[in-house]
Design a protein around this nucleic acid. Structure first.
Lengths: 340, 340
DNA sequence: TGGCCTTAGTTAAACGGTTACATACCAACC
DNA sequence: GGTTGGTATGTAACCGTTTAACTAAGGCCA
């Protein structure tokens, strides 16, 4: 079975020319007569010729494929990012290997090992934990998105938001709306998205700057045993059951925010008035909630574009001009902070 | 730059043996002394040798990679399916190309063209529209999941639920709980998931069988201009605003069901008592809703397993023993039909 | 001693492209 | 007529791996 697929050699024979000419015609290179081109093209089409990428890759030392690692594709933020990056790369002629590491170091390392062996031309690392455990054998270009862990490669670029500023702005938004006792809710999956707990930094920073006393009982961190949404609700319940109170919530992620909102609603709290809530990522969760959840748009579109642009530049062999690219974010207020 | 990565040839030279021996050692084939093996292994490790898959693929006419096409990875049902399939394939030594076709024929065709050229060993098509537009040049094995469109390949397997039975059971569940005027809500993205509108068939079938008069005004189909969740709500609003009424809703998808539930709640309807709702897929949407939405578990785990098993069998060259594999489904009743 | 088997290893071809270099032809120019 | 130059095409090496076919040496046995 498995009748060998038609090769450039078969076409050359049928057309009565050499493989070099066929290759030239197929790639618009070198020179050849119009007659030859038409003949070769016709035969190629007739025979259903499809170039063998393995052969091309071997010879050219380039597979035109990219590794795309992300911790969790089911997370709206990451999945839109991944899809945008993939689309842009595809438009540039690259195929992507999309990998879901589930925040597992070992899995990530395994993926990289196998993809390095598959000779990917570049690597895009999205979110996730620190990357200290990874050691790459080749000097392949790497782009990090939403994440700051270094890899020590010779060609390496970072793209992301100013995360401390994001949580700073979230906290400020609540404070400016009159909140005085502001809680922070996060589950580890989102907390670890940046290597140095950047995400929470702005919350502490703002409180400090405004002279607001930090109440450790209002910092709710979950170990992410289950769906972040459910867990966030439990954290809120535990906190309130223990007798603590708050009038504002900085939720590191819209899923977390939705969990918080649902838990508060279940207790009869008027979300948006009694307690204001702000989430992050501007994902579907913040939009489908009632009341709609205020959030931070982190500009996945621009992140993807900057990342791909930087990667393509490195692939073209251009020197890295800007190692760290910061994408602006934007607070979007909805019912949970406006109180309408 | 780009210092050539170390090849089997370099190792052979360093170890003072032939490339054949190195290859044998690395693949546990042929025969060699223990001394030689240790030497080769040590040098390979020292030099950070990584096999070049392009060369291997070219020689072996197998890339150990699979194309995985799905209409929408942001859809919970598809994404869990994709991840499970990918995981099982990885465990079997295959790398997956995960592709998001967005229900776009042209995009799908483009993906397949490029992946065929990349010499994928097999193809898994998940959900999506009919596949009549696709013509594959090689006789690569194909597995379809949750979808019935034929491709006319020599090695082709279908895995999925009995979709007419699914909507039949959904309708029956509502009827048995006392619903008499049962609406059907779908948006095209989900409606087209099976080629012959299988999904709705059971709804019509059940009504017919029970002698319940079909009211066309209660069949709400959206063109999927936007998020299915939002759109479902609009369809419900339009229907009720037009003066029609229902006491049960068959929603083809949990996202659709959530949209319906939200819209009804906004109108002050007591969901679960005044109107009962059942969704499909047992996704996160049905679980995070208040009230929790009844749904149908479609067993993505078993689907993935059956699909991968069938694919691996075909890749091993075994003949197709069962062309059509049906995975059982299960109605899960929660608050929106139990009325608690 | 010769024949045969086993083990350890080598040689070289093959996979399907790309490409540097060689060649053949023709026209134009001085 | 010889030189120059462009165009169209062919030749063959090369990318890194696997593997069929082969060699060489040692052991065993009649």
């Amino acid at each position: 079975m498995a009748k060998r697929t038609v090769s450039i050699y078969d076409i050359a024979k049928l057309a009565g020319v050499s493989t070099a000419t066929v290759s030239n015609v197929l790639n618009n290179k070198g020179s050849y007569s119009e007659k030859t081109r038409d003949l070769v093209m016709r035969i190629a089409r007739e025979q259903g010729y499809v170039a063998n990428f393995a052969a091309k890759s071997l010879r050219e030392a380039s597979t035109k494929s990219i590794a795309l690692l992300t911790p969790d594709v089911s997370n709206d933020f990451f999945s839109t990012l991944v899809l945008k990056v993939e689309g842009l790369l595809r438009a540039a002629g690259y195929t992507s290997y999309i990998c879901n590491t589930a925040n597992d170091d070992e899995r990530e390392a395994e993926y990289l090992r196998s993809l390095i062996s598959k000779q990917v031309d570049g690597i895009v690392l999205i979110g996730g934990l620190t990357r200290e455990h990874i050691q790459l054998p080749t000097d392949v270009p790497v782009v990090h998105i939403d994440h700051t862990g270094a890899l020590g490669m010779s060609r390496e670029v970072y793209v992301g938001n100013d995360m401390p500023k994001v949580s700073y702005d979230m906290t400020a938004t609540l404070h400016e709306r009159g909140c005085e006792r502001i809680a922070l809710v996060s589950v580890s999956a989102s907390l670890y998205r940046t290597s140095e707990h950047d995400q929470a930094a702005g919350y502490y920073g703002y409180l400090d700057e405004q002279g607001i006393r930090l109440d450790k009982n209002l910092v709710l961190e979950g170990p992410h045993r289950q769906t972040s949404l459910i867990e966030a609700g439990q954290l809120v319940d535990e906190c309130l059951d223990a007798g603590y109170s708050f009038d504002g919530v900085v939720a590191l992620g819209d899923r977390v925010a939705l969990g918080v909102v649902n838990a508060l609603k279940a207790r009869g709290v008027d979300v948006g008035r009694d307690v204001r809530v702000i989430g992050m990522d501007d994902s579907i969760y913040s939009r489908v909630s009632t009341p709609a959840i205020s959030t931070v748009r982190r500009n996945t579109g621009e992140m993807a574009e900057q990342a791909v642009q930087a990667l393509l530049a490195m692939l073209r062999g251009e020197p890295v001009e800007q190692e760290r690219i910061v994408v602006p974010h934007e607070v979007i207020e909805r019912a949970t902070t406006l109180g309408i």
